[in-house]
């Protein structure tokens, strides 16, 4: 059963793994990291739970942030709603603002995981669309005990 429609992983239920996060995007002070969860969702050993965190270290606010993801047809991806769509400007005397978003990756055929993202946001008045690809996922055999 490839569909992820019925799978929902609450952020609080996620145990972070010891695997290093992967930097998916890092430009002009806007950084997006993929952190990998230790375990798969109950009953879905084929699904990798990823916590996407978006950080702003730029002196400008970043608004209207939307992340989209695409995966090879043999896989499925689902993005749960993000914790926000705006990041306030960086202030050295406060912790950086962050957005977290849970992303689920189903890979039943255990192929090498690849993901393409499309990121749209407004930095100051400047509207941007960025695309990129991420392929440094943990080896699929380790999904579920990271």
């Amino acid at each position: 059963e490839l569909s992820l429609a019925s799978v929902h992983v609450p952020l609080e239920s996620i145990k972070p793994s010891s695997a290093l996060p992967v930097t998916a995007y890092d430009k002009n002070g806007f950084r997006i990291l993929f952190h990998f969860a230790k375990e798969c969702p109950p009953g879905r050993p084929d699904v990798l739970v990823v916590v996407v965190s978006m950080l702003n270290t730029a002196p400008l606010p970043i608004k209207s942030i939307v992340l989209q993801a695409a995966v090879p047809k043999s896989m499925k991806v689902k993005l749960q709603p993000p914790s926000g769509t705006e990041l306030s400007p960086f202030s050295p005397i406060q912790p950086p603002a962050a957005i977290t978003q849970v992303m689920l990756l189903a890979n039943p055929l255990k192929e090498k995981a690849r993901l393409r993202y499309r990121l749209t946001f407004a930095l100051g008045e400047q509207l941007s669309t960025e695309v990129g690809e991420v392929d440094q996922f943990p080896p699929v055999e380790q999904w579920g005990n990271l």
Binding site: H8, A70, V71, K73, M75, P81, P82, R118
Partner: peptide
Amino acid sequence: MDDDDFGGFEAAEIFDGG
């Protein structure tokens, strides 16, 4: 970038059915 084996872009549903 080979486009053939990738599926379409997915985005978060704004109102999560929950």
